[in-house]
Each structure stands twice: as structure tokens, then as C-alpha cells.
Design a protein around this nucleic acid. Structure first.
Lengths: 161, 161
DNA sequence: TGGAATTCGTACTGATTCAGTCCTGTTTTA
DNA sequence: TAAAACAGGACTGAATCAGTACGAATTCCA
């Protein structure tokens, strides 16, 4: 279903939380507690986001994570690309050379159009827009689901009621 | 990477092929041969597409498949929804009731926006557009890849050279 | 009326990916 | 120097995917 992984789902929840408190710096346990997500996953995802340049990390006793840029300047496309790899990479490109019929391939150029359309849609939504319209209350994010069905477009963040 | 499955990938190749010859009717072995896709998969996918109303099937000796509608009237969103299930279903909707905090959930409404944006992008591309700009030659589709990496947006159709 | 061709439905299996955990090292602060 | 926090892998069970197989139902035609 053109699905995103839970890792991405979680990542967006975390980034949204960070964007809601731009001046604050969070460490992994804090974020895990406030978003009700499992700490190991949170830690893993934060590392990834820092490595990809979306988060600024500070080591040491008073370390933690903060947004590397303003929330307005971070698009959903960037976030997804950071957590899942580049959007719109065709296997025929990555495995370059395996496909000797590239000039004859009729499907690829059209898929490129779809890639572009979807990517454009994702680039049009910024993190700040995602963080907006959140209900008040610092008790963190209430999340959904708990089943084992895979998330479709819309993610399934687990909440521990 | 917001990926589609190979099944969908194959399905689009098949539909594209069907759209290129609107007057013709194809049976499964023909399509498999002309698209260089494995027959069992082709058969499986055609069944699904027929069940979902995108293809019209005719049983019996001279049976086969044809597009149920004109290619212009079939959008990529429909195709993907047919092959992978509904786009933009949140787990919290499908498991309805499991989520008692729905009104507090801050992430969902925003994900809905992303769903809508992506779905709009996919609805804007019709099958006829996908079938267009195909290179001439009735020898069927030349496909790509052969690796084991999962397809990102852009699919990886295997070709048997 | 019976046989052949074809779709239809469903169940099954191996391989791959995902979600989540754990451990060890490195850096920074106090 | 010790504690706190990030960094970077390796690992495992569960879920999903890709592909296969088989029997039943339907239609055409001789």
C-alpha cells in the first residue's frame, strides 16, 4: 500500500515532538517517555536522524538531540528519505549495468513520473505543518493501534494506554 | 521507501501492455510471454485485477482478459489500491475501537494530509499516460533488474534476457 | 454431449525484510 | 576519573512477499 515502515512512522512522531519544543533539547529516554515509544527504537532512530543530518546531537552528560534546522525547512520527503533511503531509486539505476535494455524499457520513464509526483507531494509538506494543530498538553503523543497489521499510508504508532 | 510490491509492479506492466492494445484480448500465457514475466505470477495478478473490476475476464476456450474500462479512466491510484489494498487506511480506523484516544491523537490528522497528497498525485496519472511513450515494437516489455533489492518507488521488473 | 481450453479460488513454501533488543565503544561534562 | 549520553554494530523472532501448485468452475466447439 505504498507503505512506510514503523521506523519512519516513529521517526516522524519524534521529529514532530522535537519541532513542538524547538528551544528544548531532548535525550533519548526523555523522548521515549514523552512519546510512549520503546526506548531502544527511539535511540536507534535518533541516531539515524542525526547521521542523516536532520538532528543535531550533543554527546556527554548534558547531551541530547535537537533539530538541525528549523522545522519549516524540513520536508516530509527529507524525513522519509533519511529513514528509508532515497525516494525514487530504480533498481535498474542502483544495479546499473545489469540492465542492458535500459533504452528499450518502457516502464521506467513512466515510473519516474510517479516518483516525481509523489515526491513533490511529500516535499510540499513541512515538519512544522505536521507539528501544527497538535492538541495542547505536554503529556506527549497519544498513538494508535496495537494490532499487527502493517501500516498503510497512515502509520500505526503503538500507544501504551 | 514508500515502496510498492513486485506484484503491483508486475500488475502495472501488464495493464500497460493491455492498454497498448485495447482491441485485443489476452490470455495469461500470452501476456506472460509478451511481458517476460513468470506465468504463475501473471495469472495470479490477472485474477486479482479482474476481481477488483479493472479487468474484464472471459472464461472458456477463447477466453482471456481485457481492460474493463478505457485506459484514460483508470488511475494509478486505482491500480495500486486494487493490488495492495486501500490507500490511506489508518490502522486506527481499521481496528476501530482499539484506539480510545483517537480525539487526542495528534499524528493522525496530519498523516491524513500526506495520504491525501500522495493519493492525489497518483490519481492524477492515468493508465493511458503510462502506456504512452512506449517504444515501438510488439516484442513486449523489456524489464529491469534481477537483483534482490526491494523496489523503491520505481519498481524492479525482472527481465529474462 | 463430451472434451479441451481457460479462468477462478485457495492453500502452501522458501526467502526476505522488519521490528525490536542488546552490547560495546566513544565523547563530554562535572 | 566517573557518570551520562551518543555511536555503531550484530543479532533474533515475527511478519510479509514472491512464487508455485492444484483442483474446481465455466465456456466453446466438434
Amino acid at each position: 500500500m505504498i507503505r512506510i515502515t514503523k521506523q519512519t512512522d516513529y521517526g516522524i512522531v519524534l521529529l514532530t515532538h522535537l519541532a513542538a519544543f524547538p528551544e528544548r533539547q531532548f535525550n533519548a529516554p526523555e523522548l521515549a517517555a514523552e512519546t510512549h515509544l520503546p526506548l531502544p527504537m527511539v535511540s536507534k532512530i535518533l541516531k539515524l536522524l542525526a547521521k542523516e543530518g536532520l538532528l543535531a546531537s550533543h554527546r556527554g552528560v548534558k547531551g541530547g538531540y535537537g533539530l538541525a534546522r528549523q522545522a519549516e525547512e524540513i520536508s516530509m520527503a527529507e524525513i522519509i528519505a533519511a529513514l528509508e533511503g532515497p525516494i525514487a531509486i530504480t533498481e535498474c539505476i542502483s544495479v546499473e549495468g545489469d540492465c542492458s535494455h535500459e533504452p528499450l524499457c518502457p516502464v521506467r520513464s513512466n515510473w519516474q513520473r510517479i516518483n516525481d509526483a509523489v515526491r513533490a507531494a511529500l516535499m510540499g509538506i513541512s515538519l512544522s505543518e505536521m507539528a501544527r494543530s497538535r492538541p495542547a498538553g505536554p503529556q506527549g503523543l497519544v498513538t494508535l493501534g496495537g494490532g499487527n497489521a502493517r501500516a498503510a499510508f497512515a502509520p500505526a504508532v503503538l500507544h501504551e494506554v
